[in-house]
Nucleic acid binder design. Sequence first.
DNA 1: TCCTACCTAAACAGAG
DNA 2: CCTCTGTTTAGGTAGG
Length: 677
Amino acid sequence: MFQCVFSSSVLQPHSTSCLFKHLFYHSATPASQKQPEPIYSKKTEIQRQTVRAHSVKLFIFSALQVARQLLLQQQQQQQVSGLKSPKRNDKQPALQVPVSVAMMTPQVITPQQMQQILQQQVLSPQQLQVLLQQQQALMLQQQLQEFYKKQQEQLQLQLLQQQHAGKQPKEQQQVATQQLAFQQQLLQMQQLQQQHLLSLQRQGLLTIQPGQPALPLQPLAQGMIPAELQQLWKEVTSAHTAEETTGNNHSSLDLTTTCVSSSAPSKTSLIMNPHASTNGQLSVHTPKRESLSHEEHSHSHPLYGHGVCKWPGCEAVCEDFQSFLKHLNSEHALDDRSTAQCRVQMQVVQQLELQLAKDKERLQAMMTHLHVKSTEPKAAPQPLNLVSSVTLSKSASEASPQSLPHTPTTPTAPITPVTQGPSVITTTSMHTVGPIRRRYSDKYNVPISSDIAQNQEFYKNAEVRPPFTYASLIRQAILESPEKQLTLNEIYNWFTRMFAYFRRNAATWKNAVRHNLSLHKCFVRVENVKGAVWTVDEVEFQKRRPQKISGNPSLIKNMQSSHAYCTPLNAALQASMAENSIPLYTTASMGNPTLGNLASAIREELNGAMEHTNSNESDSSPGRSPMQAVHPVHVKEEPLDPEEAEGPLSLVTTANHSPDFDHDRDYEDEPVNEDME
DNA sequence: TCCTACCTAAACAGAG
DNA sequence: CCTCTGTTTAGGTAGG
């Protein structure tokens, strides 16, 4: 008889009353209560919203049917009582007062009022019919359109949000704010929906008892619904599938059909429903859902946007969604390359998640730490001691290390409870002290700045040797300075400030620093009024170690011509991509300069995926974590525990605030190797 | 095996 | 005399 169009429903009410009950169930019962899965997802929320919107539409539709039945009853009674009705085609615009009032007032007439009018027989059946239809139009235009509009807005927002969610990490903040806004909007929408249902109830549409017997409805040949309304009804009735037309009471409920044509309802039903399945099968999806999904695909496919394929490194132009699909299936089919790229993307996502977790933990630790710290009395401030301010945020000091504002509280040891002394971390790092043979600066002009920026907390707190040569570090220190020049002591300070590793064995590494400064031509000593400062001759630095990257001359050119300092990560990524004959990632997908170790992860992954072995990456293995790749120092002698490498904060934050770390002198002239064995 | 890059150690010198 | 700074040499490791 009646097929419920809800995708989740298999109930087939045998009458309008049953349908009412059924519809009421769908309308009044939150979809979430009917769905067993407790997990909240945006996808299911979209579906819920769609279903609920549809249910409301159907409910209005059904309520109007009841009103029509009342009208027909009245009509029949009038005909039986011999009351002559005027011409049926008479659609005189001059309506009576109640109609005008109804037209002028934004409020629709409640069924109670309507019935009252009917009972009082103030109007002729034709007028009543016109009135009813206009009421329908009003109601639909005011409620459905508004509701639908908002629904679509919300869905758009959802899709937009979903689209952004899969994008670049540097948009994470935007996404977060969008999520917030979206959730607020979602709440508003849910409230709106509830208000809508409530208003329907107040208007009496929901108070109509569905238990009353279904009355046979006579098709109405006259009284065309306005075009606008028809369009709305199309949306509403298109939910019905063509299968409905096979029902034996098909014409009783299909208002659109009866309004358009009383003779061939099934045909018009097909006409009115362009989404009706051609094979006669029941479509479990509402057309709105289908169009939505199509829209969803065409507008917010994660791999398609602005007419461009967003497959990493592709950027192929696709005029429409169909061509994009073709392109996707042809160019990005399941092959080695796609698999490798997919794995890279997985690494990216994993890394982002990892980073997010780390940052969350870091934030929590910071907040906890600062909260306690604020109540802790401070003593012995040393505002001029740069080195003692290692606990400061490096982001500030990095941009302008010498203009770093020092609060009186910073030099003191953090209040974070020191659960474990330095010995804990040195049990590992002690064994790591020694010659370092693999450094990322040895290849590709590695992302030293981004790596340091990314892992600054790690380097600051963990006694892990940075995977860079002394020359690279010295250069980095100098370039980070505002005037691109540093005295030797300032270089020392940078080392100790940035790296916990260089807070011991000072004589050793300082000697190395001096040695490097003197040895390499790229470091230029400039006599100053106060003494001498060291600068970097970038040309000499690039010349110093010609990049030997096989297989891609353009890359070599790129590496040597580009400013490695500005785009180290890009260089590393480009090197990786070029080495593996993989198109470069788009600037959007690789533009985040903070993902220092991501480059290593990608390179590593690609090396593994493409089986392009590089001798410098001999320790690469599929199972290795990116962080380990960033710190290969420990690989040979004693590999870091992955957890320690991945989550340095929890372990490290507390481990390196040894009492002798607050003053320069404490680690400057520390006896070498006294604790090495 | 050789070369190169890098690290470490150390000697040395000059300035403050 | 000591420390800091800067230079130079030597020995070693590791990778290409």
